[in-house]
Amino acid sequence: PKEPAMDRSLLIHVTVLLGLTALAVTSAPAAEPDSARQKDLIHLVRQDCGSCHGMRLAGGLGPSLLPEKMADWPDDSLVATILHGRPGTAMPGWQRFMDEAEAGWIVARLKQGFPALP
């Protein structure tokens, strides 16, 4: 049976609204981790990520994580890489050590210039 035009139009509008709502939710800024957790995350990046990306994050086995290299990469792609790794490469996923908001915080710090160890 053919759907009435009014119902189909309503369905399209609801679908668009849900999509925009999802987009707004995923692009909302994440809450900052507390200062103790920030120190843990800085240590993890400097030590664990630094073991492949270089202690100054300028590159090594893995590519540079300096702001000029990170600028053109979409944040959500970088978060996904941190959490899930890169199959077929030495890049592991880190999702058992952090959540999506914390990975987003790391991405934001990498794009600014990552802080030194406290």
Rank of each mutant, 00 (worst) to 15 (best):
D99K: 02
W94M: 08
G85Y: 05
G104W: 01
W73Y: 15
G93H: 09
M91E: 05
V79S: 07
I82Y: 04
W94H: 07
A101M: 00
T89M: 01
G104Y: 02
M91H: 10
Q95T: 12
P92A: 06
V107R: 00
G88A: 03
E102D: 08
G104E: 03
A108V: 08
A90S: 13
W105H: 00
Q95H: 12
R109Y: 00
L83M: 13
E102T: 03
S77V: 15
P87G: 08
L83Y: 11
V107T: 07
F97Q: 07
L78S: 10
V79T: 13
V107D: 10
L78K: 10
D99E: 06
T89N: 04
V79D: 08
A103M: 07
G85V: 07
R86K: 15
D76K: 13
I82C: 06
P87H: 11
D76S: 15
R86G: 02
G93Q: 11
R109V: 01
E100A: 09
L78P: 08
D75P: 10
W105D: 00
M91S: 08
G104L: 01
F97Y: 13
G93T: 08
R109M: 05
R86H: 09
S77A: 15
A108N: 09
G85T: 08
H84R: 15
A101I: 00
M98P: 04
E100Y: 01
I106G: 03
T89Q: 03
S77G: 13
W73L: 15
D75N: 08
W73G: 10
L83S: 09
A80Q: 15
W105Q: 04
R96T: 13
A103G: 08
A108S: 11
T89A: 07
V107W: 00
L83D: 04
R96P: 12
S77H: 14
E102H: 01
P74T: 12
S77K: 15
A108D: 04
D75Q: 14
E102F: 05
A108M: 11
V79N: 04
T89K: 01
G85L: 11
P92R: 12
G88W: 02
I106F: 03
I82E: 02
L83F: 10
W105E: 05
D76A: 12
S77L: 15
E100Q: 05
V107M: 02
P92E: 06
A90W: 13
L83G: 07
A80P: 05
I106M: 07
I106N: 05
E102C: 05
W94Y: 13
F97E: 09
W94A: 02
H84A: 12
D75W: 06
T89F: 10
P74S: 12
M98N: 01
A103Q: 02
P87L: 10
L78I: 13
D99S: 04
P74L: 10
A108Q: 12
W94L: 06
P92V: 08
V79M: 09
S77E: 15
H84F: 14
I106P: 00
A80I: 13
W73P: 10
A103I: 05
W73E: 14
P87C: 09
A101K: 04
I106H: 00
G88P: 06
Q95G: 04
Q95L: 11
